[in-house]
Amino acid sequence: MLFVWREALVGLRRNLTMTLAMVITTAISLGLLGAGLLAVRTIDRTEDLYYSLIAVQVALDEPTSAEDPDCSSPVCRDLRAELEADPLVASVEYESREAAFTRFQRIYAGQSILQLVRPQSLPATLRVTMDDPLRGTEIVDRFTGRPGVRNVVDQRSTVADLFSFLGSVRNATFGLAIVQALAAVLLISNTIQLSAFTRRTEVGIMRLVGATRWYTQVPFLIEAVVTGVVGAVLATAGLVAGKVFFLDNLLSGRLLANTIPPIGMTDVLGYVGPVLVVVGAVIATATGYVTLRLYVRS
């Protein structure tokens, strides 16, 4: 056991430049993969965050908005009853014009838009929370144009752009990760061949004195696995650095605060890090094994 480790370390030191190239390429590839995984995680969380908040808003027309503070008019009462009876609907809340204006004042406190808006420009609404937020369009279709309804808005469509942006980020990082992974795999394969070539005398003697495959081949596999694991550790360190120095500022800044949930340290170290180590080790081992099978006589 000691022997194979010693041989592997000697091999890694002997081709130091190749080893470094291999580690760096692997690290970049795994780092991109990790970034993609974090993006997926963030997208899921953002969706959860938004889907609990968003609703379908059925805005009522001017007469109802102006005269009905508690949805007691026949028009409003009928609409509400129909929505509540709908199996797709979880709950319905009525927000009068006054309540809407109060909320508006709270949201835009201290901003100039407040001076321009009068209560008259805001409609009373029925806020419909869906059992399944993805089926809001069915409510929109059914209630648009009904008497007493000004318009129906599915809030999901307004956040769809955000999700598609995050989705593109994820796809781009995964795409780059695959290209980099290919480069890493080729480099690992190449280095093992080189390593096997520089050690051909040793391996020849080992075979002759009856060393098993364990002794002749495992040092090369260990070289590959060490590369994969070190690459994964560096990649994780890179992600931590990226989080601390870049993302934390970005996501807590004015633009994106409360829009995208922040990425926690446990996401990086507790989830992505271990995944990268396993992926790195598995890919490196598989590459090493296939290379030894194809190019190196056992």
């Binding site: 002759l208 004195v209 009856g210 056992s298």
Partner: peptide, 13 residues
């Protein structure tokens, strides 16, 4: 193939 090492361990070269 997997028995070959055992043979070679009993032979010197």
């Amino acid at each position: 193939r997997r028995r070959v090492p055992r043979l070679r361990q009993r032979m010197g070269c």
